[in-house]
């Protein structure tokens, strides 16, 4: 399984990278960590004429934390999220979820931008982006645009990125200190893509009722999605056995799992129900 032939460029500025994309069009593919792209090349499922390595493009590797929230540069690697001491407080759900990404060696290479661009329906990073009202920052020939994560993922391995555009980062809104949250996924083995997973959070009002519930799932549709009905079942209620059961059931009906040989649709629905119930229980605990 040897890679097909391609040219390789390592521009040293974003403009230069954008310029290469403009010249080569769809024939050029961006390379960040390469942990999703290289297997595709190995199986010859992709045959780009040019790989544009973003490694030397300055400014893509930063992790920013401020009152507005968290900003992850597109070139931030999973291991850097692990190591960043401030992130655990600034966005515990992010850190917990990213802890489930792949294996040690992959975590040393794989990047935020790469995962967003690859758009695997079971991947954690897109799931967190969608669940947490993330905004994906995209640079193109016409300048920067920001796309709500909810609008970014169009289907399995499909995003709204236009030819010639580069993801430069992801913004996640600020995380209140007392927020309740949980992340749970079910994979056959550690590091595998999950059969399904859920990331969720809510805040409590002064009466102890849940407000602003965000319940997201991965591996349960052709893209990561939030579950409006499940959120409705929690919002305005105490998070107790009844509301948890109602939310979990709503979740199982709301998802739209894909059938594959790993698991039938009915199983994935039931799994979502179990995971949402357990995650809400954990968050409430």
């Amino acid at each position: 399984m040897k890679f097909p032939a391609f040219e390789y460029a390592r521009p040293t500025s974003l403009d230069a990278a954008l310029g290469l994309l403009k010249v080569h069009g769809a024939d050029a593919v961006l390379l960040a960590g390469g942990q999703s792209l290289m297997p595709l090349l190995a199986f010859r499922l992709a045959a780009p004429g040019l790989l544009v390595d973003l490694k030397d493009v300055p400014g893509l590797g930063a992790i920013g934390i401020d009152a507005e929230g968290v900003r992850l540069g597109a070139f931030v690697r999973w291991c850097e999220i692990d190591r960043n001491a401030r992130l655990a407080a600034a966005h515990p759900l992010l850190v917990e979820a990213i802890g489930h990404v792949a294996h040690y060696q992959i975590r040393n290479r794989g990047t935020v931008g790469g995962s967003l661009a690859y758009a695997d329906p079971a991947a954690e990073m897109p799931g967190i982006a969608v669940t947490c009202d993330g905004e994906i920052i995209v640079m193109g020939g016409a300048g920067e645009r920001r796309v709500a994560a909810a609008d970014f993922f169009l289907g399995a391995l499909t995003t709204c990125l236009e030819p010639g555009e580069i993801i430069t980062g992801l913004r996640l809104p600020a995380w209140p200190k007392d927020r309740r949250w949980a992340f749970l996924e079910f994979a056959r083995r550690r590091g595998d893509f999950a059969l399904a997973g859920t990331a969720l959070y809510y805040d409590l009002d002064s009466e102890g009722r849940a407000v602003d519930a965000h319940i997201g799932v991965i591996g349960a549709a052709d893209r990561p999605m939030r579950l409006a009905e499940a959120e409705r079942a929690i919002n305005g209620s105490a998070v107790d056995a009844d509301s948890i059961a109602a939310a979990a059931e709503a979740a199982s009906l709301e998802v739209d799992p894909m059938e594959d040989f790993h698991a039938p649709v009915a199983y994935r629905r039931a799994l979502v129900q179990t995971l949402v119930a357990r995650a809400l229980t954990r968050a409430a605990g």
């Binding site: 297997p39 199986f43 083995r189 550690r190 590091g191 595998d192 893509f193 040989f261 790993h262």
Partner: peptide
């Protein structure tokens, strides 16, 4: 599958025991 295509043609899909 029904056409005789092997669906578990990678080590990601053919699950061998791991260290954990």
């Amino acid at each position: 599958d029904d056409e005789g295509q092997l669906l578990t043609g990678t080590l990601a899909d053919y699950m061998m025991p791991g260290a954990d």
